[in-house]
Design a binder for these strands. Structure first.
Lengths: 142, 142
DNA sequence: CTTGAACCTGCGGTAGTTAGAGGTTGAGTG
DNA sequence: CACTCAACCTCTAACTACCGCAGGTTCAAG
């Protein structure tokens, strides 16, 4: 039987976060001692490990709920879990593309800084200047 | 003289967001009409463009506040602005590395899903299994 | 002068935690 | 068996960076 603190240490979770997961129904209500303290078993340890691992992969708590639901019903088709993973992969790839663009622009900013006064500073200028960076809301020619 | 709605459109910002920026002191209190509606000039348009552009580059509002402070005092050294940009670049590169690792793992998950039952589903298994993925809180050999 | 789109304030909510106040429990030591 | 005190308990509020709604007012066009 594990205390909440032990469970927290084993999974790299804060104690408060575990209680939060319980509150939103992601973790089950565990057994309690006579004094009212939570006691966990291995099932809960596995479940929380799953949740944390999925969080590290960027899955939202809602998505994790779906995945847990799937693994609670082992007869169901795998296709759904696969679809969720694919969706997640797509999102990750989009974020990657965006971040790569940002890295390029930041590198340019850093390169162009010559160490002078802020009045000539390219870092600030680049941020002020929107023209090199047409964004969604701006129509070309408008 | 621009209304808040026009300013919003020109910068791709929600009206509420502009009011929020004003509330937290990132945007100045603008002039008002007799009836109490906000009216903006080009200075505010520039400032908001700066903010939005920096946000798109992943700068936090606090960091943007620093940058605005720097550009409000053009005598100061450029080094500070440069340092902020470098810090930001570092963070972006860390995020990129993390996301690339995630992509790899997600790709593996998707590849290994054979379309069977959830009981054999690799997607769920990979998420359950922590052993292939040593994390910070786990000491090696502990 | 009338219409109605755009404005106003203020409050509440979102995700995913984290922190703190103020009080109780329980395992280990003497 | 008493004592200690770290770890537990609940509840509330904060955090980031916004978004949305309700209920009421203003302003420019027709």
């Amino acid at each position: 039987m594990l205390t909440i603190g032990t469970l927290a240490k084993k999974t790299g979770t804060k104690v408060q976060t575990i209680r939060y997961y319980e509150q939103i129904g992601l973790m089950p209500e565990p057994g309690r001692t006579e004094g009212g303290q939570r006691r966990y078993g291995n099932a809960e340890l596995d479940r929380l490990s799953f949740v944390r691992h999925a969080r590290q992969l960027g899955f939202s708590l809602d998505t994790i709920r779906e995945l847990l639901d799937l693994s609670d019903h082992p007869g169901k088709s795998c296709a759904e879990a696969d679809a969720i993973a694919r969706r997640q992969l797509k999102q990750v790839e989009q974020r990657l593309a965006r971040l790569e663009a940002l890295r390029t622009e930041l590198k340019r900013m850093v390169h162009e800084c010559s160490g002078g006064q802020t009045s000539d500073c390219r870092v600030l200028e680049v941020l002020r200047d929107h023209s090199e960076c047409l964004t969604d809301h701006e129509e070309i020619g408008a």
